[in-house]
Each structure stands twice: as C-alpha cells, then as structure tokens.
Design a protein around this nucleic acid. Structure first.
Length: 670
DNA sequence: TCCCTATACATTTTT
DNA sequence: TGTATAGGGA
C-alpha cells in the first residue's frame, strides 16, 4: 500500500498543527490510519497517548478495525478512537465531581429533552409545537456556542429571547435535578470544565500527545474549542476535512472552522489531497464543474487517473411512479448487461419519504434492497420501553424513563394517581421516584394507587440491586419475565405477528447489551450504566457475520451517503424544489444544496444516472417541477439527456413497463 | 382500558 | 396523498 506524495506529506508531518484538505475519494481514511501507525511505529508515541475523534460511531468502529489490521493488537493497545460525544461522556465520567453530577447520570435524547421542555413551558406556550421546536433549537445553539443561561441574562435580548433564556435556565436546572444530561451537554460541559480549571486541563493534555479529527468541516464551535483545549500550546494535531462536503450546517456545524484554524494556529501546515481514486475522470470533471459554482477559501481540483468513462445519463419520467419503474428497469437491464451484483447499485434521494415508491417497485420485482435510515430501531415502542426500564434501574431520578413505563405493562397506576404524584414531587422539589418513596406519600395518594406505587417501588429497588450487583444479564432477563412483558405485548398488539416482531427487537437489543457487557478484542467489557449511555448514543458495536456481504441495492438519503461509494449511482428527484429543496431556495441557501449534490455525484465510481419527473404529487397537489438547476450547471458535453419517449397513454405505458420488467426478471432469474 | 376516528403534518438528523 | 398520534366514546 503505497502513499502518493501528498498523502505521504500528510502522514509524516507530526511536529505541529496540520490541516489535510481531503477531496472526495482521495484516501483520507488511509491517511488517518497510516498516520496513527506512523506515530506508533516510527515516532515511538505509545498508542495510549493518541486520540482520534470522529462524528459517527460507524466511522469510529471502521477506523478501529483498520488500525487494528495495520498495527496489530499489541501495538494498538490503549489507542483512543471515539466520537466527540463519547469522548465528552468519558471526560464527564472521570470528572463527575468537578462537574457536580452524581455518578450514574442519565442521558436524554432529543425526545426526552422535548418532553421536558414541553412540561416546563406548558403554562406559557401551551404545547405550541412550532415554538417548542424553536426553543429546543435555540437552547442547542446556545450550548453549541458555549453560552450558559446566566450569561444570557446580562445580554440585551428582546422580550421573546428573554423568555427563552428563562426557559433555558429552568431546563438546565431540571436536567440537573434529574441527574441527566442532553447530547449538547456532552460537549459543552467538558469544554467549559477544561477552559476554567487549569489542573483538569493539564491532566487531559498530558494524556493526549497527538490528536486527530475526522470530518473537521462538521465541527461546531464547542467541538472546535474542545479540540483547542485538548491540544493546548503544543498543538500537535491533524484535522482532516473537505469544505465542499459540509452538509450539516443546519445542525450547527461551522465550516468556517477551517478558516479559523489558520488564524488560531499560524504555524498550520496545509496539505491538499487532490488525486481521486474512486471515480471515472468524467464523473470527477462534472463534480469539479458543479462545485465551482460555490465560493471557495481553499482552491482544490480533483483529478483521476482512472479512465474517462461513460457519459452521465439523465432519465425523464412522467411522474414519480414512473420514475421508480424507470430506475428499476434501468437497473435490471444494466445488471443483466454488465453481470454485476445488486450491491453495486445505490439510489440516492433528498428526503426519506422518497424511498417509499422505490421500495414498492423493488419489492414487486423481487429485487433485494436495503433502506438506510428512516424509522430507527430505537424509535420502536418495545425498544423504548426496555430502554426506559434500564435507565430507571441505573438512575431512579430519571423521570422521563419512569413516566414511560410506570404503567407499561398496566399496573393500575392511572392518570389521576400520576398527577397527584407529580404535584407531590413538585412541592418537594424531588424526582418522581423519590416522591414515590416518601413516607408521607400516603397523605396525597390512598387506596389502590398507593399499593400499586409501593409495589412498583419495591420491585424496582430490588431489581436495581440485583442488576447492579450480581449477574446483570440474568437480572435483565428476570426483569422482562417478572413484569410479563411478552404476555402484555401479545395481548395489546394488533396482531401476533407484530408482537413477535416486538419480541425479536427486544432480543436484538438484549444481544447488543450482552456483547457490550462482555466486551471483545476491540472493546473492553462495560458496566450496565455505561452500556445504557452508549446505547442512547446509538453506539452499539454491531459486529460479526452478516456485515456487508449481503447482495442488496442500497437506498438512502444523500446525507446518509456521505463517506460511502458505489459503482453505479442513481440520483433521483433532480428537480427544483426537491434538490435544491424548496425551503433552501426560500432561505437562499443554495450553496449547501449544491454541496449535497456534489456529495451525491462523487459517490459514483463508474456510472451515474439522474432522474426527474414531469409531474410530482406533493401533499395531494399536482406539481410540474422544473429540472434542477444543478443539471444545467454540469458540463453538457458529458451528459446524455434522454429524449422524450413517443406518446403513450398511461395504461399502455404501465403495461409496457410492467411486461418489460417482467421479461427482464425472467432473464435475470434463469 | 381499548379501539377507532379525526387530525395534523410531511427536509436533511452523524449524537 | 399517506401515515402517526392523540383523544373521545364505549
């Protein structure tokens, strides 16, 4: 595995701050893994002093695997590779006292935090969804900018902002009372801690002699500050990024951090990786021309030494059903002619809702496919229930968890009883569980409700004791059994099949938990509180047999495709209003949409297809979308716009399309 | 407590 | 247009 000159430069420069501008497909993962190996092997930096940070758990896992391949077990021992959020969680865990949290704190996900906000603002906002959404966003941005509620009070704010600042303060106070943190706290708290406490900062700086950051263009202000504090004066670090692939600014990412880096570290060495190893010359040329329509701070021009390749095809469809049929027909014909596999193809779209029709047509043509994204595993009711139980076992003050499951399965603790309990807890300023255990509870709740609550308390305390002390896995199994969850699921589900699905989801979850408790070559064993928090961060180590060897067409959003590559790519819905999306047109944010298109184009290795429709139904309304402006920005010499087909009636076309597909299927299946 | 109907909502969503 | 959810009525 030889490195090219630029890659080699990026790997071997270790004496100071280094920015690697890594164009799409230029081998940045290779640079990062090689650099880690270089540090350990050639520069005698023990692996435990190296920290590499990514954004997704998937990326972290992949990096771990690739480093393990080059370095081996011995040399990579103690190497720290994690996501920003897991890093933050680990810092908080070892500095609980400094931060003022009790051990065993809970993590609130977006839904939990929304539930809390809704509760806090009931009187003033009355559950106004739009306002709540705005508020949640506001708080998140404040946290990303490292602004504490107290600081906001001093600023001159409008009346509306002042009210939001008040909510922010109450929200933080409540989180603390529940001994809980939200996702943004995982970055903000360690950053503020390191900023203000020198001895803690020095301790962590000592532990990190070299730091690497992947997808640097996606960092927000607090994440960048965390990096700065960790690398300190010595500034021994490498960040890898590509401003043209910044597609998460709507989530607080600040691609300007690339420019800031040059200001904050004048000694910064900038290395550009411009040779692309992924795509045909033509695809790359198109990508370059497209992205040239955006302003740039760093100029960069990708080139490829692979062949020039086939022209990009643009398929016109009458409507969205037709679009899906055309893609499937084209895909099957292409597969037949080129003797390829299903997994060589990807269908990329702007919004998740677009997947439905493709799913439908693929299913009816028995094409194996895999949808990435959409309804998450953790959004399933049963999974949320079990997670809530586990959270409660770990932290009894977690009110959201308690509220979710105190009457699931039914225990005769109804709305009225809960309301009384809630009021009681409010008066005492304690969590619901603490209120439920209070000796004076009998003065506000009586009879059946009281007995039910007392039984529940005893049950939870006993379980928590068992699980935290003894055999955790057996304890969890016992819990699910003793509350008769399975029976309840079968009794309440719409069909036995749905209940079966539910139980199988629970086994999947249980399998992950078992894996994490036991650990493996890449991960040390964890305790239950650790497992619960990592699961909320969606950080489960799915590993083992059924990896990527299944032969399925990949369906995903353009966002989800970042970092992946496919021989043949279909970018569908290339229409004004979809890509660029209408709301981005309205907000005059075309540049990010163009980057999104750029990400899509650069996923393709050999061939690229675009599709668009004449008519599209949206919310029951019939639209006649214009072709996406991005199609016109591409070099027209490299495109083949499909001519309009001779006129055929809808029924005829339907039949034709169907029989065409059926014939192909026969050919493929024989 | 459960079931059905009316109603709201429909970009992207690494953690 | 299609789906998730909340709340009313039995």
């Amino acid at each position: 595995m030889k490195l090219n000159q630029a890659q080699n430069q990026a790997v071997t420069f270790i004496s100071g701050p280094c920015l690697v501008l890594a164009g799409a497909g230029s081998g940045k993962t290779r640079v990062i893994t090689n650099k880690i190996a270089y540090l350990v092997r050639d520069c005698d930096v023990p692996a435990r002093y190296i920290l590499a940070v990514t954004f997704t758990n998937k990326a972290a896992r992949e990096m771990k695997e690739r480093v393990a391949l080059t370095l081996g077990k011995q040399e990579s021992r103690g190497l720290k590779i994690s996501t920003f959020h897991t890093l933050g969680l680990n810092i908080i865990k070892s500095e609980v006292k400094e931060i003022g949290l009790k051990p065993g704190f809970s993590l609130f996900d977006d839904k939990d935090s929304m539930a809390l906000l809704k509760d806090l603002t009931m009187e003033k906002l009355d559950g106004d969804k739009e306002q709540l959404f705005l508020l949640q966003n506001c708080i998140s941005s404040w946290k990303n900018d490292l602004i504490m509620p107290e600081q906001l009070q001093k600023k001159a704010l409008s009346a509306g902002e002042l009210e939001f600042a008040q909510f922010y303060l109450r929200y933080q106070q409540n989180l603390r009372a529940y001994n809980a943190l939200d996702f943004d706290d995982l970055i903000m708290l360690p950053t503020l801690l390191l900023r203000h406490k020198e001895h803690v900062r020095l301790k962590w700086q000592k532990r990190i002699r070299y730091m690497l950051v992947d997808e640097y263009q996606d960092t927000n202000t607090s994440q960048y500050e965390l990096v700065r504090l960790l690398v300190g004066e010595r500034a021994r670090f490498t960040v890898v990024g590509d401003d043209d692939q910044s597609i998460y600014s709507w989530r607080g990412a600040k691609p300007q951090n690339l420019v800031l880096l040059q200001k904050d570290f004048p000694a910064l060495r900038v290395v550009k990786l411009e040779q692309n190893y992924r795509s045909s010359g033509r695809i790359l040329h198109c990508a370059n021309i497209l992205i040239q329509n955006n302003p740039h701070v760093f100029d960069k021009k990708l080139y490829s030494e692979l062949g020039y390749g086939e022209p990009l095809k643009i398929l016109l469809a009458k409507n969205e059903d037709h679009e899906a049929e055309r893609v499937v027909a084209e895909l099957m014909a292409h597969k037949f002619m080129n003797n390829t596999q299903y997994k060589d193809y990807a269908v990329l779209y702007r919004g998740n809702h677009q997947s439905r029709l493709f799913e439908k047509v693929m299913m009816s043509n028995r094409i194996p496919y895999k949808i990435n994204g959409g309804m998450s595993f953790f959004a399933r009711a049963e999974v949320k229930d079990i997670m809530a139980y586990l959270r409660l076992l770990v932290n009894q003050d977690d009110d959201n968890a308690l509220l979710r499951i105190i009457n699931t399965p039914t225990r005769g603790i109804g709305r009225a009883t809960l309301e009384k309990l809630g009021n009681f807890a409010n008066e005492l300023h304690v969590s619901l569980f603490e209120a439920a255990c209070h000796p004076q509870l009998g003065s506000v709740i009586s009879g059946k409700g009281l007995t039910a609550i007392e039984n529940f308390n005893r049950w939870i305390v006993g379980l928590a004791d068992n699980v935290m002390r003894g055999d955790t896995q057996a304890g969890i199994r016992e819990m699910i059994k003793s509350m008769q969850y399975e029976e309840w699921l079968y009794a309440t589900s719409t069909s036995p099949k749905a209940a079966e699905m539910g139980m199988s989801n629970i086994s999947t979850l249980f399998g992950w938990i078992t894996n994490m408790l036991e650990g493996d070559e890449l991960e040390p064993p964890m305790t239950l509180p650790e497992v619960v928090n990592r699961l909320i961060l969606r950080d489960m180590m799915e590993r083992g047999e059924d990896k990527e060897d299944t032969d399925q067409v990949q369906l995903m959003t353009l966002h989800a495709s970042k970092g992946l590559e496919f021989p043949y790519v279909f970018m569908v819905g290339m229409e004004e209003g979809l890509l660029p999306h209408q709301s981005s047109i309205d907000e005059d944010n075309i540049e990010e949409e163009r980057r999104l298109a750029y990400v899509g184009v650069t996923r393709a290795q050999r061939e690229l297809f675009f599709t668009l429709t004449r008519e599209r139904r949206q919310y029951g309304e019939l639209l006649n979308p214009e072709p996406s402006r991005f199609l016109y920005e591409l070099p027209q010499d490299d495109l083949v716009w499909e001519d309009k087909k001779p006129k055929v009636s809808a029924e005829q076309r339907q039949q034709k399309g169907q029989t065409g597909i059926a014939n192909l299927r026969n050919l493929l299946n024989k």
